[in-house]
Structure formats: structure tokens, C-alpha cells
Write a protein that binds this DNA or RNA. Sequence first.
DNA 1: GTCTATAACCTGATAGAC
DNA 2: GTCTATCAGGTTATAGAC
Lengths: 195, 195
Amino acid sequence: MEELSTEQKIIAAARSVFTKKGFAGARTRDIAEEAGINLALLNYYFGSKENLFKIVIKEKFEQLFGMISPILSDESVPLGTKIKTLVDNYTKLLKENEELPIFILNELSVNGHIFDELLQYARQISQPVLEKQLKNNGMTLSVPNFIMNIISLTIFPFIAKPLFVSAGLITIENYTDFLNERRDNIPDWIMKLSK
Amino acid sequence: MEELSTEQKIIAAARSVFTKKGFAGARTRDIAEEAGINLALLNYYFGSKENLFKIVIKEKFEQLFGMISPILSDESVPLGTKIKTLVDNYTKLLKENEELPIFILNELSVNGHIFDELLQYARQISQPVLEKQLKNNGMTLSVPNFIMNIISLTIFPFIAKPLFVSAGLITIENYTDFLNERRDNIPDWIMKLSK
DNA sequence: GTCTATAACCTGATAGAC
DNA sequence: GTCTATCAGGTTATAGAC
């Protein structure tokens, strides 16, 4: 077990605080404290709150959306496998990072300008491969709808957790089971509603 | 056209600023300015930023989630009509209030404690009516999955708009058409994947 | 009720010692 | 590199005149 460098300790703390509180709600003091270092040191290494934030948001954005294009664009993988891989990977990722989607999507909505550089170099999803596969499987759905359906059904239940729990629809103890059950069902659902 | 009272002008401005920036990112100065009044007056009427926020968040929460239970609980309405009503109402509401879902869901995640009182009195969704209707329609899906599927497919596309646009999947000009097309398709999709 | 002025506090960032 | 101390600026909230 290796000790983290000071720089890495700060980034780790920044990940934790920023994803929980958002940019505006996070305080550099809290990050410093969680990193076990002094506030001055944070500025020594990263110069400003915004610089540190950009490092974290870039990382998290990539973590959340970086997998879509590689998985969907591979021509040699059958459509059914792609769906299953995407749903499985997201469910695993989000179980371990519950605040991730709401963090990214909220910052995208509130501080969209911070993403300008980031999105400029973002992999654009290539549609022709998927289009062909959908057609070959006798499916009439458009590619954007196909992708939207997968990630809506998979990601939204994580975002809506506090709501569903408080509405009495699912208990907090059963929520993981609920998500696992959905993970196993979504691929079939997607095939059904793509025809 | 009636003039708004000062109190109402402040609330209107608070709605606008809070939903765009979130609690932490919003400044009372901006709210006062947008209301066309002085900062002191805001505190004269509402005492604190948090008090004003509670009024707005309660209103918005109700606007976003208040419709679910009344629509779904009415025993005399056929299942297909319920789905269509829910999807239509949400699409209309969110077209006019794009930041609404991310605002509520983010505050729920970041400042959950503010909702404590609010959720205490929240209508719990009664499941027996829906359960019966699902069964009578030969459907095997559980009620929580049924509700989750409807609101995932309907609400998430609004939240994911900046993402889909920047990924080059849909242009900003075509997004409204995309949402309208989905609104018309989702009821069929829901029926399909509930069997 | 509404304003100006200011208090009280908080937060990001820096100076300077070690 | 790391710390303590502090600055500079911003933000919420209030005092007090009108």
C-alpha cells in the first residue's frame, strides 16, 4: 500500500468534495481538510479552486460518458452484446459512484462554459455502424433514440433514488436489488422497443 | 395585466435565479436586482436566503412530482390513458421549464436536509390500484419498474440535452422535434416492455 | 415599505517564516 | 514543500433614515 503524494491527496479530496457539493457549494477549506493538508498548499499546487475543479470534472466526465462511443462503435461486436456491456458497466460504475451523474449533469447545466474546452475534443459518436446494425436486426428505431433509451433506463434510476425512496416505492435496503434486477432486464426491454 | 406585489416580484425573481444557479450558486443580490428592488427588502420580506429558497423549492418540487400520484391513482382511468397523460404533461411542463428536473434532483442530492419537512408530508403513491390494472392488462412488471420506466424515458432526455447536442447526436434546432416524437412513442414503448 | 450604508461573516488567495 | 497569519473581496443580513 503506497502513500499518496500530496498532490494526489488533494485531488482525491477534491473529487470527494466537489462531487458531493458541486463547484459552487464546495469550499477549498473543506478540500484541504479532507486531504489532511493546509489551504495554502492547495493553492501552491493548483493555483485556484477553478483549476482544481477542471481536473476533477474532466476526469469524472470521461468516467461517465467516455465508455459510450468505444462500446457502441466497434463493428465486430453484436448489437445485443453492446447493450449488455453498456448497461452492466454503467450499473457497476454508478453503484460505486452514486453522485456522479447528477454532479456532471448539474455542472453541465449550471457552469456549461467550463465544459467548452472539454467538449471540443470530445469523441463524437459515429452513427453509421449502429445504424447498420439496427437495420440488420430488423429494427426501425433511430440511433439517437436507441442510445437515449439505453442510458435513460440505466442511469435515471440512480438519479431518482432519493425520490423513489421518499415516495415509498422502494426501500433503501431493497434499492440495490432493484437496480440489479433492472440491469438484467434492460437489454431485453431495449430489444423490444427498438423494433 | 395586474402589477405584481413586491413579495411576488421577489418570489418570481427567486424562482428564476435559484433554478438556474442552484442554492449555493445563487446570490441574493442577483435576485433583488432581477426583482427590481433592493437587497434589504428581500430580507425584510423573507428573513433569509434559505427561507426564500424553501418557498421556491417546495413549489418546484410539487410542480415536478405532484402530478404523478393523482394521475396514477385514479381507478376509473384506463392504464393506457394514464401513461399518455403523464408523458404528455411532463413533456409540456419540461419544455417550458428546462432546468426544473436537474434543479430539483441536484438539490435533493446536495442539500437533502432541506427536503426533510417537505417529504414528510409528501403524498405516498398508492400501489394497489396500479398493481390491479397492470395485472388486468396481462402485464407482469412491478409497479416501481413501471413508474421508473415512464419517468426515465420521459424526463431524462431533457436532462441529457446538453450532452446529446455536444455529442453531435441531435442538433439544438431538432431537439424539440426529437422530444415531441418521443412523447408520441413512449406510451407504446411502455406497453411493450410491461408485458 | 423602501431605501442607503454598513456590519458581520465567509471564502479564495497570498505573503512570508521555516 | 509546508505551515501560520492575513489580506482582499464578496455575500448575507441588519441598522437606521425617510
